[in-house]
Amino acid sequence: MAPPLLEIRNLTVAFDTPAGRVHAVNDLSYTLNEGETLGVVGESGSGKSVHVLAMLGLLPSPPAKILSGEVLFQGRDLLKLPEAQLRELRGGQIGMVFQDPMSSLNPVLTVGRQLREVIERHSDLRGAKAEARATELLDLVGIPNPGARLKQYPHEFSGGMRQRVMIAIGLSCNPKLLIADEATTALDVTVQAQILDLVRDLKDRLGTTVIWITHDMGVVAELADTIQVMYGGRIMERGPVRAVFRQPHSAYTWGLLRSLPDEGARAQRRLYQIPGAPPDMANPPAGDPFAPRNPYATDRCRTEVPPLRPASPVPGHMVAAWYDLPARLAAEAAHG
């Protein structure tokens, strides 16, 4: 089998704040194969955005500090690359789409100029050729009348259109890896559906590997091959989307899935709410970060960090938990 496109090993990122050192990413390791789509979910502060910013060297330092780890992209450790080489990768091999399409484009430059900038930065295309490529990209992401649109400013685009432009910028140099950080969160569901269709289509046509960061389980279910649930800077559960959705092995994943509204018979029920509040990362819990909010936590969970272990016969389905969730749930059901 080909080596993975991206391999993260033991990445730990912390922020030095007046209140002390906050560990945003704890000993994170995972691999991503070429062509795979990874959906990363988790609540605010789970480290899902921070870890990608850290690997691209986009975190401001200070206060951010990468304490340990390696990020191997095509065999090269991004964390050790000099800034100039990292800049070559950013926007070239690795495209990035940010959350807020309203503020991610420079308001005083035309869309065309911003697209051309990436193209000229990372390829030999200049002048009319760069212009043609920019037109082609806008066309690719489904923006009608791309030639005229290039001459317009960002405020003349709607939110969905701007996010398409961001995706066009992210894709402009045929990246191996596209990272989308909450790329559809600011958009309404109709536009979100269009963008997801677009990404799926592009992925199929261009074979791009995608990391899609979101807190929307529905988006992951629709788009991703693999889901990775993060909490407190750690992976709680990871595996093929179908397997994880069918039978979650982490109480956190289970809680997230239960808190989704479902159509159908029990539409009237009160939505499940995970009790408690996210952990204070300046003073993280000693063991499993989710233990204080977890009704199924054991004593061991409170004192010792659980490692990732295979969760089910499905290959690649891993969970970090000392307890056996399906067994506990089955027992509960048996007792009524």
Partner: peptide, 28 residues
């Protein structure tokens, strides 16, 4: 602190380039 500066960094722009091409037009 605006996101477009971070996007500019994410497309591989250097500090000088961001200052001259992205920030300067905004402060004109």
């Amino acid at each position: 602190e605006r996101e477009f500066v971070q996007s500019a960094r994410a497309i591989g722009a250097s500090g000088w380039r961001i200052m001259l091409r992205h920030i300067l037009p905004n402060v004109m």
